[in-house]
Amino acid sequence: MAMASQMITANRLSDGMVVYFTAGKGWSETFAQGAVWNDKESAETALNESKESVKARIVVEPYLFDVAVTDAGPKPTSARERIRADHNPSVAPDQGSWTGRIPD
């Protein structure tokens, strides 16, 4: 079986925000800006490159995860990564919990 396509994600050190490793070897909060690797070797190489950002104290624990490449672009195959990609719980925002952070 062919390897599923993969992307690299991590949490940002400062605020824990979910980020994706980009083709330019940076990080983006936007899932769609994350780079996709289609073979194991280049995925592992990219993962190693992404770990430079751990030493630089930008992100914590980058890892590879599977995506399905569709006409509309890559989609995470697991519920966990779908929820992470949304940056929010799936809980409806009208439940009163979403007043948002207030300034000083």
Binding site: G96, S97, T99, G100, R101, I102, D104
Partner: peptide, 8 residues
């Protein structure tokens, strides 16, 4: 909750 979080 308000100052440092998302209000809950």
């Amino acid at each position: 909750a308000r100052r440092y979080d998302r209000g809950f």
